[in-house]
């Protein structure tokens, strides 16, 4: 099962995901991301430190959220990808599309510069 912990830091909404993201759990992630984009959160950081697996439905969910943030000039960033998840982003070339950071702090810090 997937758990999503939501934290707010300044204007940033941080979604810390714990579990595997697949066809079964990606709707839950989508629901949480939709809540953030509908609220027009200026910055959404998706913390993937505890995500050991992500499939194409997870990627699709993130792409959808990225588009939604772009529509209102918000930002979506990813943080702390495990190596297997990094490989999936590289295989799909989405590592060139998303802003990916080593840590949540780095993702938050990069917004201030």
């Amino acid at each position: 099962m997937l758990t999503v912990n939501i934290e707010t830091k300044g204007n940033a909404r941080i979604l810390a995901i714990d579990g595997e993201i697949d066809l079964y759990s990606s709707p839950q992630l989508r629901k949480e991301l939709l809540a953030a984009t509908e609220a027009k959160a200026p910055l959404i950081v998706v913390d993937l430190a505890k995500v050991g697996y992500m499939d194409s439905s997870g990627l699709a969910t993130l792409i959808e959220a990225l588009r939604q943030t772009s529509d209102y000039s918000g930002k979506l960033k990813l943080a702390s990808l495990q190596s297997g998840v990094q490989d999936v982003f590289a295989l799909s070339r989405l590592d060139k599309v998303f802003e990916i950071h080593e840590s949540v702090d780095q993702a938050l810090g990069s917004n201030e510069s």
Binding site: D55, S56, L59, A60, L91
Partner: peptide, 8 residues
């Protein structure tokens, strides 16, 4: 979104 499964 979508269409990446076959590519993988």
């Amino acid at each position: 979104p979508g269409g990446l499964g076959i590519h993988f």
